[in-house]
Computed example of a mutant assay.
Amino acid sequence: MSSEWVEVTEADQVTPEILEAAESIYDGWFAHASRVDWPEFLDRLEGQEFDSIGGRLDLGDSLMSPATRRIKAHIRDYRKR
């Protein structure tokens, strides 16, 4: 796999592999917290390598991009389970 950074800013670029990693981060760091610290959460996710995007995850500069909104929505739904 390439160690190149791959910018993912659109919702349709967020793969199931990225969402699974987000669930793992939630379970490991935030499951018992009263709220998710989104900047910290996204920092933990960003930089991981994913086969599905062919490199390291770069979520761009905005915490409100369509990609980050999709990840946040997924984790909010995941928390309800």
Rank of each mutant, 00 (worst) to 15 (best):
E17V: 11
E17Y: 05
E17I: 08
I18H: 01
I18S: 09
I18L: 14
I18E: 14
L19V: 14
L19A: 07
L19W: 06
E20R: 13
A21C: 10
A22V: 12
A22G: 09
E23D: 13
E23K: 13
E23R: 15
S24H: 13
I25A: 02
Y26S: 04
G28E: 11
G28I: 13
W29Y: 12
W29E: 08
F30R: 11
H32I: 08
A33K: 14
A33E: 15
V36C: 10
V36W: 05
W38Q: 06
W38D: 11
E40R: 06
E40M: 07
L42F: 13
L42Q: 07
L42I: 14
D43E: 11
D43G: 12
L45E: 03
L45W: 03
G47T: 08
G47I: 09
Q48V: 10
Q48M: 14
E49R: 07
F50C: 07
F50P: 03
F50V: 02
S52N: 02
S52K: 08
G54M: 02
G55E: 02
G55I: 03
G55S: 09
R56A: 09
R56V: 10
L57S: 00
D58G: 08
G60M: 06
D61N: 03
D61F: 02
S62R: 12
L63H: 04
L63E: 03
L63I: 05
M64C: 03
M64F: 06
A67V: 10
T68V: 15
T68L: 04
R69Q: 12
R69A: 12
R70N: 04
R70L: 15
K72F: 13
A73H: 10
H74I: 08
I75P: 00
R76D: 11
R76E: 12
R76Q: 14
D77W: 04
D77P: 00
D77C: 00
Y78W: 06
Y78H: 05
R79Q: 15
R79G: 01
K80C: 01
K80R: 13
K80S: 02
K80Y: 02
R81C: 09
